[in-house]
Design a protein around this nucleic acid. Structure first.
Lengths: 181, 181
DNA sequence: GTCTATACGAGGATAGAC
DNA sequence: GTCTATCCTCGTATAGAC
């Protein structure tokens, strides 16, 4: 059974946007790969922006759910460790990893997008609340970086000697260490 | 005494590119802020790309010098610690920090730039050579992340309770810890 | 409902006048 | 060293075929 056009547009667009850049990818390219004219895209999406807006929305909703879950639990080392595990899980689902990659690589292109502002705030809140009130600056920064470390691990896939699984496992160990005092 | 036009174009362009994005910033905007027409920019630079190419070149040359220096020294913990100090020093000079920020935020826009490829390779080589041949995956990833941590620290300036100096100091401590076994 | 044909203003870029 | 005229492609929009 054939996917619907709308979903195919999103898939092609996300791939091209991530590979070539959001602004460097024209609607004509997307339309050609789909086998239609670019005007046809405007039947399915109001603007170029709308093509990825729903995908970004998915990723953001997930982050907000993660924050809600975190706040519902006692702020212990155990909870923080579980937060890292859950965050890493979201990055394993290819759809979210693709969106995360897109967002990393197209920061300025999405600059004044309201969704991006919300997401930045969610990430900020998450990292901030991981710290105890009386923590030292080093402890605060260290814990904040634990989440970033999970992303950084995905950039290091060029370390040819290591397999993806080894990198994922080692990245998690490094991130966990950043939670320790 | 007035700066020459060429330098002013670079300064205006780097600021606008970093704030708004490379592709989102038009030559007309730069020209207007400078008080000329966009066609006039083509006297000073062959393409839009060339406007920042020389700035990126500076940053890249510096990274390559850092790699050369690192290779000239015994690969000890002491040398790796000094590498972090030197790397952080480059990020303190505003010109390089601005270029680094621009590169972080406009990755896909610079995608097929030969300079970018060279820089990625230099960073990769640097992080790879920081590892001993017999190191565990966790040690390798941890050391590789030490350099990224210095950048990540610059993203955390929104941690309102901490001053820039506190963040810099704490970031360095976290990065140094990532070098330890 | 789904698409094609066509047009508009703005973008980067070039050639050439002054 | 600065500008005009010009070109092609871009995102966007609408009218209308099927």
């Amino acid at each position: 059974m054939r996917e619907d056009t709308r979903t195919r547009i999103q898939e092609i667009a996300l791939r091209l946007f991530t590979e070539q850049g959001y602004e460097a990818t024209s609607l004509r390219e997307i339309a050609e790969e789909l086998g239609v004219t670019k005007a046809a895209l405007y039947y399915h999406f109001r603007t170029k922006d709308d093509i990825i807006a729903s995908l970004v929305e998915m990723r953001m909703t997930e982050l907000e759910e993660l924050l809600t879950w975190f706040r519902s639990r006692p702020n212990t080392l155990q909870t923080r460790r579980e937060l890292l595990e859950r965050y890493a899980e979201t990055l394993k689902r290819s759809r979210y990893l693709d969106v995360a990659k897109f967002l990393e690589r197209n920061q300025t292109a999405m600059r004044d997008h309201p969704q991006l502002t919300r997401m930045r705030e969610t990430m900020m809140t998450l990292t901030r609340e991981m710290s105890d009130p009386g923590a030292t600056p080093t402890e605060r920064i260290s814990r904040s970086m634990a989440l970033f470390a999970l992303h950084a691990g995905k950039w290091l896939t060029l370390e040819t000697e290591l397999s993806d699984e080894e990198i994922d496992k080692a990245t998690m160990e490094v991130a966990m260490r950043l939670l320790e005092p």
